[in-house]
Design a protein around this nucleic acid. Sequence first.
DNA 1: ATAGTAAGTTACATAAAGTAAGTTAAATAC
DNA 2: GTATTTAACTTACTTTATGTAACTTACTAT
Lengths: 108, 108
Amino acid sequence: MTQPNICPKFEKAISILSQRWTGLVIYQLLNGTQRFNEIQSAIGISGKVLSDRLKDLEQKGLVKRDVIPDTPVVIEYSLTDKGRSMEPILKTIEQWALDWMQVDETQQ
Amino acid sequence: MTQPNICPKFEKAISILSQRWTGLVIYQLLNGTQRFNEIQSAIGISGKVLSDRLKDLEQKGLVKRDVIPDTPVVIEYSLTDKGRSMEPILKTIEQWALDWMQVDETQQ
DNA sequence: ATAGTAAGTTACATAAAGTAAGTTAAATAC
DNA sequence: GTATTTAACTTACTTTATGTAACTTACTAT
């Protein structure tokens, strides 16, 4: 047996979540529509990687990018239905974190 | 605002899950105790990275490594209680995958 | 003796992420 | 009206993570 035997849908889902920052970006957008710099300062991601992630998430249909023709132009990011459907996943992780994670310096 | 304002426990939890392969390794071990090569061939991970991940998960208290003094020696990996406590997370992801993921070549 | 298996490790190559400076366009600030 | 600031990125470069393939060690089977 050299071929993986994992459900391809599950594999795809977990490959999304296991990309660094993706979970945090979606978690952050669960709070509602936000602008680039808001997301960036909220989660402490670099502009370059946030830009990558947002493009990727948009392309995957999880995030919507809206250009508001204000002056100057404003760009708003929000979750699509598909994006919002990940809420139970993030909430389950949140609960697990509260139950099992301890924050101290001596343990990584 | 330049500092992140995310709950540190949540951040820690999601940093575990957003490390490539970690979710799949735990998911795989939900099926019960397994040996190195079993995990490797089941999920299609390289020996090097699996070795890294198992050490890491052991150090985080999620995975237990048992040396069975058979001849030749057998090494078994299994989840600790803490590791098994991630089951709801993985199951939620699994359900989401069934509901929302489509597997085809035209979409990434 | 020779080959095979389990559980890794090592050396090297490629890809992803981080850092910091630069870009564009419009909006104040002086 | 020139100079600075802000938003939303992009570019160039460095560091870290991951992948690939060959090697190791200890035992077993042929």
